[in-house]
Amino acid sequence: MTDHHEMTPTTVKDFLLALLGGLAAPLLAISMIVGLVVSIQARQTDSNPADVSDQEVRERIQPIGNSVAIDPNKPHIDMTGEQVYTEVCSACHGSGALGSPKFKDTAAWGKRITQGYDTLLLHAFNGIRKMPPRGGEPDLTDLEVARAMVYMANAGGAKFEAVLQKEVEPTAAELARGKTVYAENCANCHDTGVTGAQKLTDPAWAGLIKQGKDYLYTAAIKGTFGGPAKGGNDQLSDADAKVAVDYMVNEAKAALAKAPAAAAKK
């Protein structure tokens, strides 16, 4: 005898639930696609003004470097104080940035002018507080630095004249003594360059020599550049430390003088 099963009649409610269930997945997919498209368009929208965007594009397409042809045989002509100020110093002194005395600010310069020409020149050479040595331009000559300092100081009320004190050249006897002191106290580092010490043939001496002998004497006696005071010999006299500096500077100058000729020959 065959069993007879009757199907339950479909109600309107059942039909609606089935319809909604079938549409749920496609609707979810469509909403996700729309959201993705909207987010992509939002990221591509340029929020910067047209001129800012144009400037950013120009900066991005700037060449990596500029080729500048310099004639090594052309004699150097020192710039005037005004020229040095315009090209180097005005970046800070023009606005008073980093606490620097603003150009023509007599109140700010007055406090410094009272310290005297020599002190201000020393600060210009070696740097002070946030100002780097030589205003951050190591290629400036001593006279260019002096002229720039005088130009600014005089605009602030001083009556300085850009003059340089010529350093006294050591005698042959002093250089001989300096060589001995160097061999006994300095050679271990400066002959090899260990601990970052400048070898006597290191081109970095060009920048150090520009700082002046007084600066180098102080560095040798008190210790700086990562080296110990008096080469680590507390018993060494200040006078011997100075003649050692004289010897090193003399040797470094000789090496620097030979460098261009050697490069040309090569």
Rank of each mutant, 00 (worst) to 15 (best):
Q62G: 08
V37C: 08
K210I: 03
V68C: 02
V145H: 05
H93K: 11
C189K: 04
S100M: 11
G227I: 10
V37H: 01
I30V: 11
G178C: 02
G94N: 10
D118M: 05
L140W: 02
R147E: 11
E184P: 00
L175P: 01
K166F: 05
M131K: 03
D51V: 10
V57Y: 07
G193K: 11
Q235R: 10
P72I: 10
L236A: 02
Q235N: 11
A29K: 00
I70Q: 12
G127M: 06
N48V: 13
A25V: 14
F15N: 03
N73F: 08
A187D: 13
H190W: 08
T8H: 07
D3K: 13
Q235I: 06
N233L: 01
T2E: 11
V150Q: 04
L28H: 00
T171I: 05
G81L: 03
L175D: 00
A155R: 03
D202H: 07
G231I: 00
Y217P: 02
I30Q: 03
T80R: 00
A197V: 09
D51C: 02
A219R: 12
D3F: 15
K258M: 10
T114D: 13
R147W: 09
L216D: 13
G96D: 02
S90K: 14
Y215D: 09
V12G: 02
L36Y: 08
K265N: 12
I77F: 12
M79F: 07
H5G: 05
N185L: 01
C189Y: 06
E59Q: 13
A241I: 03
A176H: 00
Q41G: 14
A219F: 04
R60A: 15
A146R: 02
C186V: 03
T86E: 15
A264V: 07
T86W: 09
D246K: 06
G96L: 06
Q44A: 08
G227H: 12
E174P: 00
H123K: 13
A187N: 10
K13Y: 14
E161R: 09
I128S: 10
A239V: 08
C92A: 11
D240Q: 00
G127L: 05
Q62Y: 10
T45K: 15
A263I: 14
A254S: 12
I33S: 07
T195W: 14
P170F: 06
A252T: 00
N188M: 09
T119W: 12
D238K: 01
A69W: 13
E169R: 14
D234A: 13
D105A: 06
V249Y: 08
A69I: 13
P72S: 09
A108N: 06
A229W: 04
H5Q: 13
V194T: 10
T195N: 13
L200V: 07
T180K: 13
I30P: 00
V163M: 09
K13W: 13
A254K: 14
E6M: 08
A197H: 08
E167T: 09
K210T: 05
A24C: 04
Y151F: 15
F225D: 03
P170M: 04
G156L: 01
L36F: 11
K222R: 14
L16S: 07
G94K: 10
A187Q: 14
A146M: 03
D78K: 02
T10Q: 10
P133H: 08
L16N: 06
R112C: 09
V145Y: 05
A229T: 04
K258N: 09
G231A: 01
D118L: 07
A91S: 12
D142N: 14
Q41E: 07
I33K: 09
V84P: 01
G81H: 04
A239T: 09
A255T: 02
E6Y: 14
